[in-house]
Design a protein around this nucleic acid. Structure first.
Lengths: 203, 203
DNA sequence: TAACTTTGTAAGTGATTACTTACATCAAGG
DNA sequence: CCTTGATGTAAGTAATCACTTACAAAGTTA
């Protein structure tokens, strides 16, 4: 009988970086941020602690890389929706629903974002977080303004305030997800929020 | 010439507990959660690290005591407003404005709440956080329902969803406060949010 | 005043942290 | 085949963590 012993195979740095980032999110969601140590990280991937530092200079750099991924992937996706040629109402629906989808799919990320915001005084990190927050706000504002310019929505509505209120949707969804371990929230959630938004926008 | 050397005077445990809790919030706001160590805590108060453990069994117990203060003080205040005999519209205004006030006055607390929620798997802590969140939701729902029963507000509005949307207000205010170091937000903020809420509630 | 409890300190404790070092092994190119 | 650079490991490192211990001194009560 031949026994194959699985040994850690060599991978290029890009692949490893992806694995490490994914493991960070997994740990945060399953065990909480407190258990996000480089030791646990290495154990989760099945490599040595030293290997991690081959692919990232510091632990903080891993966090930064993840947050920059959010900036490109998530915000990029929202930008596409907001600047598409669809009707404003349809854009708004896609915008809200894909936000809700992203946040429920990537529960670890959102905990990471808000916790890092309060933990760190790292300015680079804070400024990226500010960008993510403000980009969402200005993209949703663009949709509101397009609908108002078109004449379908109320031009009296204070867009800035509405965008602020909108931002509460993803954020409080997060809180619920954290506190209720993701059990709540069916896929109707975004449609419910959409209908409230539409009532606010009605002339 | 006589020189008086100021030495740490003995205080009763209750006084010290108050000082310790206040110092925790100060540290969180000025230096971030990362620097909330028992060493820094002792230094900030001007006592020894050992003395802290005379008044609280563990560091976690300090956090718990603070969160329980929020439950009694903040939620207690909101409960008084929600169950008062004022008009629903007036209650809603007081409710939103005193929430905004509390959160801006106690910036350290809110960072603590949300960070602990994602950090810890401590069930006692999580359950208290859930209570704080759900109490706010059900108290604001009560105001909505009273206004609907009275006939002033739209009975078609889905109260549960509206309460969820409402919860976004304090939560996203927090994010702004964290990211912008409390520079934004004048005292009109709650009135702006109130007027959006009122449009949603209009028949 | 004597006995006892409470509040304080200084100097530890072992555990854990992010990160480093010395060295092995693998893949690729000349 | 041999060199070279990238990727891996085991076993460290000093620093920091929450918390303890042994003891002193102050306050209280008898």
């Amino acid at each position: 009988m031949i026994t194959y012993i699985k040994v850690m195979e060599r991978q290029n740095s890009e692949t490893r970086q992806g694995q490490i980032k994914q493991a960070v999110l997994d740990i945060i969601y399953t065990d909480g941020l407190k258990n996000l140590s480089t030791r646990n990280l290495a154990k989760r991937i099945g490599m040595s602690e030293g290997a991690i530092f081959r692919h990232f200079a510091t632990k903080q750099d891993i966090i930064l890389a993840i947050i920059q991924d959010v900036q490109t992937d998530f915000i990029g996706q929202l930008r596409k929706i907001a600047t598409s040629s669809l009707e404003p109402k349809e854009r708004l629906q896609k915008f809200i629903c894909s936000t809700v989808q992203y946040l429920t799919d990537n529960k670890g990320i959102t905990m990471l974002l808000f916790s890092e915001a309060s933990h760190n005084n790292d300015e680079q990190l804070k400024s990226t977080l500010r960008q993510i927050f403000n980009n969402q706000k200005s993209l949703v504002s663009k949709i509101f303004l397009d609908g108002i310019a078109e004449g379908t929505w109320d031009e009296e509505i204070p867009v800035e305030n509405l965008a602020m209120l909108y931002m509460g949707i993803p954020v409080s969804l997060n809180i619920e997800l954290i506190l209720n371990r993701g059990e709540s929230q069916n896929d109707n959630f975004c449609k419910k929020m959409l209908s409230l938004m539409l009532k606010l926008l009605k002339r």
